[in-house]
């Protein structure tokens, strides 16, 4: 579960209020789109959810961790409970596809045997079994993002946060990426996806949180164009 209570974020540099008294609650198993224009506060919200920064005021709870009071030494433990997907994929360039996915399991100190079973499983989920030995530079944008999704899902986290995951790939592949995230969501994983691609949001529908100038401007469910398909 993700919960923000009266959260303010104020940047001293420039005296900008990035978030103003934001209250949010995202329950386990939800799929949520977060939308908004540049400067609306989307990036700041993500930084709060990944504990890259702490709020100036209010409290942030993610997966049972109170991020407002989380000590530095506990951050790795918290981050292992979430999966991150980035717009620029952020794969480790000198590791193969298999090793990139296995890396997150090594970080969580999983046994060699578990890694040998889990990595092929998630690579199969994202349909990249045949690319296991390839390096990121040998893959297309869409394939790299699928590796990133496999990596995020490998440790079976309760929450996946995707920061504009379709921003660097062909529009037709964007739908495939969101479909993959939807499939993961059906397994019970909460997914928060930040995007500014309104067509995607309209197509898939569901819960939409729109930010505007640091405030929650809209938080409701809309029907998607793909319903009934």
């Amino acid at each position: 579960m993700v919960e923000l209570k009266n959260v303010d974020v104020h940047y001293k540099e420039g005296g900008v209020d990035a978030l103003n008294d934001v209250n949010l609650r995202i329950n386990d198993g939800e799929f949520v789109f977060i939308v908004g224009n540049s400067g609306a506060g989307k990036s700041t919200l993500l930084k709060l959810l990944t504990r890259e920064r702490v709020p100036t005021g209010g409290r942030v709870f993610v997966n049972g961790f109170n991020l407002s009071k989380l000590r530095e030494g506990k951050i790795p433990k918290f981050r292992r409970s979430i999966g991150m997907i980035f717009q620029d994929f952020r794969l480790i360039p000198n590791l193969t596809v298999y090793e990139n996915v296995a890396f997150v399991l090594r970080v969580t100190d999983r046994s060699r045997r578990f890694i040998r079973q889990r990595v092929p499983y998630v690579l199969n989920l994202v349909r990249l079994t045949d690319k296991a030995r390839a390096y990121p530079s040998q893959l297309s944008g869409g394939e790299q993002q699928r590796v990133a999704i496999a990596r995020a899902f490998a440790s079976d986290p309760g929450l996946i946060i995707a920061d504009e995951p379709t921003g660097n790939i062909d529009p037709e592949l964007s739908y495939e990426i969101v479909e993959l995230l939807k499939d993961i969501n059906k397994c019970g994983t909460t997914v928060i996806m930040v995007t500014h691609e309104h067509d995607l949001v309209k197509y898939f529908g569901g819960r939409i949180i729109s930010l505007k100038k640091g405030n929650v401007d809209f938080d409701d469910y809309i029907g998607g164009n793909n319903e009934g398909q």
Partner: peptide
């Protein structure tokens, strides 16, 4: 630095 940043994001100590 990007590699280190990735490691930090996936929860590496």
């Amino acid at each position: 630095r990007m590699q280190i940043s990735i490691m930090k994001h996936v929860g590496a100590t």
